[in-house]
Simulated scan of single mutants.
Amino acid sequence: MTERKTVIDLASFQSHLTVDDYKAIGADYAIVKTTESTNYVNPYIRSLIDRSAGGGIKGFAFYHFGRFHNDAQAVAEANYFIANSKAQANVQPGTLMILDAEISNMPTSSVIAFLNTVRNAGYHPGFYTYKYLLPNFNLEAIHPNMDMFWLAAYPLANGKAAGKNPDFNYFPSANYVDMWQHTDNLLGYNVDGSITLTDNAINLFNPSEAPTPEPNKPIEQEKPAIKPTLPAHNWVDDLGVRWFAEKGTFTSNTDLHLRWGASPSSSVIAMLHAGDIVKYDAWARTNGFVYVRQPRPNGQYGYVAVQDARTNEPFGKFE
């Protein structure tokens, strides 16, 4: 019987996790977001690797959120992914490098072009998508061009916390699945959790060659992501929503409502358009979205939904 391993995936939204958090989660492997499109590099790659390795993660892979709609752009994004993974995480040939395919109108031919670019550069290409998006792709055509298939489907909706052992009565049946992402809130830590289904998935993490913390650099355990004058590292508001302090900039790629509360029913402050920028100091998952909080004059705050919490598709880019 194939051994099951717990895998988490890490992006900027998990930058607050500490070494102790990773120890409590107890995952075996991690997949770290490197890039998105050709204009975003995750600024927390090194700290995510260092802290998770210090918390017991034994093997790593990396992923890219694809934004392409044609073969040429797919190749450009794959090369951007490879170059920045080398620069930021010193990835070595043979590393598992995964395409996160979640947007609409992404051609199968372009997926294949991306995967082949990764493979030709000496890496193991992986393909990730959601069960409900599978009809958008020709999986049989993609299969020979990928070394690992990672499929997402959540038995528990609305961000409910899930354990490490999913209910296989809800398994998203499909061909070639090596790993199942079964929750976006593993053990209540607001981190995506997956379980391996094949030996192939386990072998591709190359645990004996996992990245290690930078030499002569102590592992950061409680370094705050923001200035001490901002609110506590994380807290629960009056509505029971847990917020995480993170200072950043969000640039919208579509029309969005800036509201007085983190709810679709809250009053609108303004309409944001593509290219509009919001500086935020905290984020939370609630009401089916990821919201960020914008500090405003007189101690007030604005809130905007910046990502679909079900599909993880962002509505812009983060810096």
Rank of each mutant, 00 (worst) to 15 (best):
T2W: 04
T2M: 11
V7C: 07
V7I: 13
I8Q: 02
S12C: 11
D20F: 05
D28P: 10
I31M: 14
Y40A: 13
N42C: 10
I49V: 13
I49A: 05
R51L: 06
A53S: 15
G56V: 08
G59K: 08
H64L: 15
H69I: 13
H69F: 09
F81P: 05
I82V: 12
L96M: 14
I98P: 02
A101W: 08
S104Q: 12
N105T: 08
S110N: 04
V111I: 15
I112P: 07
A113S: 14
N116I: 07
G159R: 01
A162I: 00
G163K: 03
Y170G: 00
A174T: 00
Y176I: 03
T183A: 00
Y189N: 03
Y189E: 04
D192I: 00
G193A: 01
N203E: 14
L204Q: 10
E209Q: 11
P215M: 03
P218A: 01
P218K: 01
E220W: 09
K223L: 15
K223M: 14
K227P: 08
P231W: 07
N234I: 07
L239Q: 13
V241E: 04
F244T: 15
G248P: 11
T254E: 04
L256M: 15
H257N: 12
W260T: 15
A262G: 11
S265A: 11
L272P: 07
H273A: 12
D276Q: 09
K279C: 08
Y280L: 02
A284D: 05
N287Q: 11
F289E: 15
F289H: 14
R293W: 05
N298W: 10
G299E: 04
V304H: 08
T311E: 01
T311M: 01
